[in-house]
Amino acid sequence: MDKILNDLAYAMIRIRKVEEKIDELNEAEKVKCPTHLCVGQEAIAVGVGHNLLQKDYVFSTYRGHGHYLAKGGDLKKMMAEILGSEKGCCKGRGGSMHIVDPDVNFMGTSALVGGCLPAAVGTAWASQMKNEKRVTAVFFGDGAVEEGIFHESMNFASLKKLPIIFVCENNFYAVNSPIEARQPLGADIYKRAEGYRMKGYLVDGNNVLDVNKIAKELIDNARNGDGPSLLEARTFRWCVHVQHYNETLKRKEELINWQKRCPIKNLGFSSLEIVKMSQKINLEIEELLN
């Protein structure tokens, strides 16, 4: 268990440090494309990613750096892509919003909200047709639930009992639009699964142990042929939606409380241990940037 805890913490800190570095490069005007950072939301990527095999598929969104790293994506190639180099994972053609790493079956990300859901279902369908026991995890935000394609994808995945887990990172905002302005009060996202006779679960997206535990169960189920599930992980984005954006007063107030629930700090590691891990990671980042 200690080893697992350590791995999870390290993976989260690594994502945090990479995002902080990208933010810094942004400030220095070195990043030449829109970047959507996932600081504050690391536990979901890590908790799910930890239970996926290399052969499993992942699809994500423009806010995908964490998912990419948690799936074992090549950090050097991701950074090169963000910095607009031909050595990047998309050869300079995709930027931060379209990272990919076929070596670990990180299949790509969409800059259109909900855009990857049907293709993710498609990989699960292929896996079923080929009897490969590969699971697909698809990450998306609370906003994507409002798109028609979410419902089409859920319906078909459940109809065919496909090996997929739908991971909704509910950070309560789409850009600066709060969820109350977009979805009926009390219409919990995880409960939408019920209408499709699929299992739906709610998890604290800032608690990596909880995410890890439930993700393991759902991924195992999917692999064993028990069909898809929907996991709603509640969390909060600590940074602006994309560079140049301002925070609203409301978000600033909410952020104070969410920062008290930092997914990394609340794991019980001493500050010294966290500093040590951070230093090691920073070294890795500096080395690959040189």
Binding site: C33, P34, R93, M97, A111
Partner: peptide, 8 residues
């Protein structure tokens, strides 16, 4: 502009 890319 500024790398908004193929979908934006």
């Amino acid at each position: 502009g500024k790398g908004q890319g193929a979908q934006h």
